[in-house]
């Protein structure tokens, strides 16, 4: 898990004293991180922005619960994941599958033909939805936290409250599913 810088630690300590000006700094520093995690789980720009707002507001309301600056990052992950769960539960929409072939072509291009080029958010959303659209909320979350965010199983267990065995099972299924798709399309 990415460690906080000294500046971030100091900002968090000041926020715990109900200082709204310092919280603004925290919002500016942490929002991109919150957005990226939420985006990778939800695969949607608008939803991810909503999660950023909800997460930051929750942080302001509960920042005194954070025992130390070191425990801030796992706590933040937990809030993001819970907000994403809430959103996935509310939506429960079917993933878009109409443009599968175009998305696989895009993946192929970006992986081999034009290396080094950056993906736009929309392209990334398409790829994420294609890969994780058929996974359950838990499988999706574990996959993103483990494979993309590179959190250890212990850290994921703290964030999601799942047992390590459960995490391994969900991750195994997600990997298997992805490998099947890769075998078929790439």
């Amino acid at each position: 898990m990415q460690q906080l810088t000294d500046i971030e630690k100091s900002i968090i300590e000041q926020c715990r004293n109900d200082n709204l000006q310092d919280f603004r700094k925290l919002v500016e520093k942490e929002s991109p991180f919150v957005f990226s995690v939420a985006f990778r789980i939800l695969g949607n720009n608008d939803d991810a922005e909503d999660v950023v707002q909800e997460t930051m507001i929750t942080i302001w309301g509960k920042i005194k619960e954070v025992k130390s600056a070191e425990s801030f990052r796992p706590w933040l992950y937990r809030i993001i994941v819970n907000k994403c769960y809430d959103r996935m539960r509310k939506k429960k929409r079917e993933p878009e599958t109409t443009a599968d072939d175009r998305t696989w072509a895009l993946i192929s291009n970006k992986m081999y033909e034009i290396p080094g080029t950056n993906l736009e958010n929309e392209e990334l959303a398409r790829i994420i939805n294609l890969l994780t659209g058929k996974l359950s909320a838990k499988q999706k979350t574990v996959f993103v936290l483990s494979e993309i965010e590179e959190l250890s199983n212990d850290e994921i267990s703290i964030v999601t409250g799942m047992t390590k065995l459960n995490i391994k099972a969900n991750l195994h299924y997600a990997r298997k599913r992805l490998n099947e798709m890769i075998q078929k399309h790439l």
Binding site: F35, S36, I107, M111, N118, L124, I127, I148, E150
Partner: peptide, 14 residues
């Protein structure tokens, strides 16, 4: 490769 592709492309807020 696919995982690396997603990892290195961190989504950005507009």
């Amino acid at each position: 490769d696919l995982i690396r592709l997603i990892q290195k492309n961190r989504p950005e807020m507009k």
